[in-house]
């Protein structure tokens, strides 16, 4: 079932491989959202909150129409802002199947959002970025190559930036997300670097700071994986505010999520 080389999880026709579904998501995009957490990710971030979504095996196959039906039942609660978010794992590993899913959601007048690490930029992804995704939330892991590798286990963070450029070119809305870890990502020079890099982007509406916390640890233990960030600590209120102040120089809106 799994084709690792293509960086893509092969599914049955018209299905998505789902880890879980949150029906009252209020932290993954604007308003109240149905959040579909898809199974599988190519990275293994040290702080991953959903490490059980990383494995590309597992999950449950849902028919796309079934998911659309669920979204329709929740639609009265989406109001003017809410909608559907696909998150993960890395949802774009299933970009081929996401195209018809998002197409259907758009037909139903539902706002669509992709929460991604930006490492998959194939022709399906481009279709999503250019046409069907009303919002993209792009996760910026680290501004240095070494930092990126330390955190994610992979090199070549440039793909994230290429991805951002592509979205910028589409002219459609984008949010950045940044996990703030004391001494690892919460350093003034890194924050300034990120601000400098993105300051001229017109599609970026806001950046969300996600202060690091250890809530995911027990999931790592359940999986029998070693949690390597054990020694990292959580930010103090002041550290969060200081980071936020720096970012405010570059971004329209800085939100602590």
């Amino acid at each position: 079932m799994l084709n690792i080389n293509n960086c893509h999880i092969k599914n049955l026709d018209n299905t998505l491989r789902v880890h879980s579904i949150e029906s009252f998501g209020t932290h993954d995009g604007p308003g109240i959202r149905m959040v579909v957490f898809l199974q599988g990710c190519k990275l293994k971030c040290l702080y991953c909150h959903n490490p059980d979504t990383i494995q590309t095996s597992g999950g449950t196959e849902y028919q796309i129409e079934e998911l659309v039906g669920m979204a329709l039942k929740m639609k009265p609660y989406f109001g003017k802002k809410g909608g559907v978010t696909v998150s993960g794992g890395e949802p774009l590993l299933q970009s081929k199947e996401l195209v018809p899913f998002f197409k259907r959601l758009k037909e139903e007048g539902i706002h669509t959002n992709i929460d991604t690490n930006g490492r998959v930029l194939n022709h399906f992804t481009k279709e999503l970025l250019d046409e069907y995704a009303d919002l993209v939330m792009l996760d910026i892991k680290h501004m240095t190559e070494d930092g990126y590798e330390f955190l994610t286990g992979m090199r070549n963070k440039e793909t994230t930036f290429t991805f951002a450029k592509h979205r910028e070119a589409s002219g459609k809305a984008m949010w950045l997300r940044y996990v703030l870890i004391p001494d690892i990502t919460n350093k003034p020079e890194l924050l300034h670097a990120m601000g400098q890099y993105f300051k001229d982007y017109k599609t970026i509406e806001k950046i969300e700071i996600q202060p690091y916390h250890k809530l995911g640890i027990h999931k790592w233990e359940t999986l029998g994986w070693e949690y390597q960030l054990k020694d990292a600590r959580e930010n103090t209120e002041e550290e969060i505010n200081a980071a936020s102040e720096i970012l405010k120089n570059y971004f329209k809106e800085v939100k602590i999520n």
Binding site: T26, H27, I32, P76, Y77, K81, G82
Partner: peptide, 24 residues
């Protein structure tokens, strides 16, 4: 926390929930 991460989000989301529930 489940209602949203900022006060404004919580307000928006509760008001929207009420609109949604009563629209049914």
């Amino acid at each position: 926390k489940s209602l949203g991460s900022s006060e404004q989000d919580r307000i928006d989301n509760l008001a929207t929930t009420l609109d949604g529930y009563f629209s049914r």
